[in-house]
Design a protein around this nucleic acid. Structure first.
Lengths: 192, 192
DNA sequence: CACTCAAGTCACCGTTCGATGACTTGAGGA
DNA sequence: TCCTCAAGTCATCGAACGGTGACTTGAGTG
């Protein structure tokens, strides 16, 4: 295993993106320098400008959310919230420093661009999907309240590292989640 | 009103702290320079080092959370959660750029110091107070789950600016909050 | 008035930042 | 073999960063 990855544009680009994802997630936009990313990638800093044009564009590409996880919308509706919990909070996000990309991006939320991208994904993916399940008035507000809870759990678990949540498993949380979701959505939800 | 506040150590210190609070909250630690703070304060940048020693110590002092709001722990227990909602989410936090200081500090959570201070306040103030109300097992986990919800609401409302929550009032949210709190704590809670 | 001492200012240090343009190196095809 | 063209490197820019020490200014006191 000689590890001679030299002179391979795509591999170098991919490596830069991988490292950028991790560092931007962990240290935020302002706390990460292009030299940091280049050093961790074993690459010359100026390649970043050749490949991405600017630090900002590297950030945008590195933190671009991929496709919506397909299995989120599949499966029984009464288990949607449980699936969201696993997808948002209890998945292996080690590529993003251990946090869901949305939570990681909050660290760069001093920049309006980033806030807007978070908003679009939260509203377009999570609120929209939950809204359809609401039985009763205030559909949007209820859906946002439930989304807020998922975001809050993700933050307290991985950023603040509150003792009980930091060590809890998906199965520990799911029952409480189901009860709350039932109450908020106005229809029975299951813990998955 | 001649606005000659010159040569007044305490007034200058206070002004620096006020501006620092706002900028650190809005732009985060890494996004704020001592020159920014000095310029907004109408003061020479080096005064910051004379008065506070370093940027870090200015940050610590500016973001130090004051006393726990006394009225949080007073009043009927069944309205505790409603009081917390008003105190955390729906208060006038314009001194901190419009967000609860804890939410604002999340923007600087790349630094472990900051994370630890957030943890101490969340656990020591909110989780602890809620824990005592829990009826049933998993006291700490349930209290953290409810705290997570308050944090999430604060974030979605002021940082992400999700449409329904951004325009909602305390009275719009309180009924849902009461229902969820009742379910999570295992005892009846009121919307305040 | 003259002195004093703290409040406030000035010039500048070394480092790091994002970014640029000219250069060198190396693999594949003729 | 040699030539080409893209991948990668080097030297360097101007600005901004946190921080320091020597200096100036101004209000209160004798």
């Amino acid at each position: 295993m000689t590890e001679t990855r030299k002179r391979d544009r795509e591999a170098t680009r991919a490596k830069l993106l991988e490292v950028a994802r991790l560092r931007f997630a962990r240290e935020g936009y302002d706390g990460t320098s292009v030299r940091d990313i280049a050093r961790d990638s074993g690459v010359d800093p100026t390649l970043i400008f050749r490949y991405f044009g600017s630090k900002k564009r590297l950030f945008d590409e590195a933190t671009a959310t991929g496709e919506v996880p397909a299995d989120l919308l599949d499966g029984p509706p009464e288990e949607l919230v449980a699936r969201m919990l696993r997808s948002v909070v209890f998945q292996d996000w080690s590529r993003y420093g251990g946090e869901h990309p949305l939570v990681a991006m909050l660290r760069s939320s001093a920049h309006e661009d980033t806030r807007q991208r978070i908003r679009e994904e939260v509203c377009g993916t999570y609120v929209r999907a939950l809204e359809e399940l609401v039985d009763g008035p205030d559909k949007e507000l209820r859906a946002e309240l439930l989304s807020a809870w998922l975001v809050g759990i993700g933050i307290l678990r991985s950023v603040v590292a509150t003792p009980a949540l930091a060590t809890a498993t998906s199965d520990d949380v799911a029952p409480y989640l189901a009860a709350v979701a039932t109450s908020l959505l106005g229809r029975p939800m299951s813990g998955g």
